[in-house]
Amino acid sequence: MYTLIKDTLLSQVRTLWMVFLKIFTKADTVEYPDVQPYMFPRWRGRIILSRDPDGEERCVACNLCAVACPVDCIALQKAETEDGRWYPEFFRINFSRCIMCGFCEEACPTNAIQLTPDFEMAEYARQDMVWEKEDLLIDGTGKYHDYNYYRVAGKQIAGKDKGEALNEAPPVDVRSLLP
C-alpha cells in the first residue's frame, strides 16, 4: 500500500514540487539576436566546400554527398583537369531544401564538404537560397586541417607521380626480369 501510494501519488506530488522549484532557476534562453549564442565547432549549420592544405579544391566530385542527401538537395557535375584531378564543374546546394542533417559531411571521403557553425541563412527570396560552388567554396581547410586526399589516393596528378602517394612503392618496371 505504501509503495503504491509512494509510486503513484507521492511521486506525482514530488514531481510537481520539483518542477515548481524550477521557477527559481535561471532561464537557459539566450536572447538572440540581442546576445550572440556560442556556436560549437561541430554545429551543423551552413555547408561549405573546403580546400586542402595546398590550397586546391578538396571536392573530387565523387557524388557521394549527393546520393547521401535525404532531400536530394545537392547536385554537381564531375569535370577533370588536364593532370587528372577530378573537380566539380558546378556544385549546387538548394538550401531551401537542406535539413542540415550532415549526412553529406559524413559521406564525404575527402573532407571537402563540411557543415559550419553558421545558421543565419534566412533570405527573403527562396531563389537566393540556391548556392553555387562560388558561394560554397572557402579558402581554408575548414575543420580538418591536414587531410589531403590526393596524397593518399593512387591517382596520379600534377606534382604527385605514380608511387608517390602514401604507402606506395615506385612504379613497377614491367620489362624488368628481376623478381
Partner: peptide, 16 residues
C-alpha cells in the same frame, strides 16, 4: 531508387 539531386539540379533556374 537512389537518383540524387532532384531538388537541386534545376534549382539554379527556378527554386520552385
Amino acid at each position: 531508387h537512389r537518383y540524387s539531386g532532384r531538388t537541386a539540379m534545376i534549382a539554379n533556374l527556378n527554386v520552385h
